[in-house]
Simulated assay, not measured.
Amino acid sequence: MHHRFFSPRFEKSAALLIAHPHLSIAEIASMTGFSSQRYFSTSFKGWKGISPSEYREKMQSE
């Protein structure tokens, strides 16, 4: 996977996950241009090593 291509999208999605906890993962996937929640979640995990929901939980607890 070409993470450089996706990096700005991942950075935006990571910021949205933290700033807008009321948004679903599917909404964030759509807002950042991913075709499906599943593709977004799989790609995000490849980038960060954890799922979007795990990332959100981790960042909120810090």
Rank of each mutant, 00 (worst) to 15 (best):
M1E: 13
M1P: 13
M1H: 13
M1L: 13
H2S: 08
H2Y: 07
H2G: 06
H3W: 14
H3E: 09
R4E: 10
F5R: 11
F5K: 11
F6M: 03
F6T: 05
F6N: 12
F6D: 10
S7L: 07
S7F: 02
S7C: 09
P8D: 00
R9A: 05
R9S: 07
F10G: 09
E11M: 02
E11Q: 07
E11S: 08
E11L: 04
K12Y: 01
K12P: 01
K12C: 03
K12G: 02
K12L: 07
K12W: 00
S13F: 09
S13E: 11
S13H: 09
A14N: 02
A14T: 03
A15Y: 00
A15P: 00
L16R: 12
L16F: 10
L16G: 10
L16D: 08
L16Q: 11
L17A: 03
L17C: 04
L17S: 03
L17M: 12
L17E: 02
L17K: 05
I18G: 09
P21I: 13
P21S: 15
P21M: 14
P21G: 13
P21V: 13
H22T: 15
S24V: 06
S24G: 12
I25H: 10
I25W: 04
A26F: 01
A26E: 01
E27W: 06
E27L: 12
E27S: 13
I28V: 14
I28G: 03
I28S: 04
A29C: 12
S30Y: 08
M31L: 15
M31C: 07
T32H: 07
T32A: 11
G33I: 09
F34L: 08
F34K: 03
F34G: 03
S35C: 09
S35Q: 10
S35Y: 04
S36W: 05
S36M: 10
S36C: 10
Q37K: 10
Q37I: 01
Q37Y: 00
R38V: 05
R38Y: 08
Y39K: 10
Y39E: 05
Y39S: 11
F40D: 01
F40C: 05
S41A: 15
S41W: 03
S41Y: 05
S43Q: 10
S43M: 04
F44V: 06
F44K: 02
F44H: 06
K45C: 07
K45G: 04
W47P: 03
K48M: 10
K48F: 05
K48C: 06
K48E: 09
G49N: 00
I50S: 06
S51I: 01
S51R: 01
P52H: 12
S53M: 14
S53D: 15
S53Y: 15
S53G: 13
S53A: 15
E54T: 11
Y55E: 04
Y55N: 03
R56I: 02
R56Y: 04
R56T: 02
E57M: 13
K58W: 03
K58A: 12
M59S: 11
M59N: 11
M59K: 14
Q60F: 15
S61N: 13
S61P: 06
S61F: 13
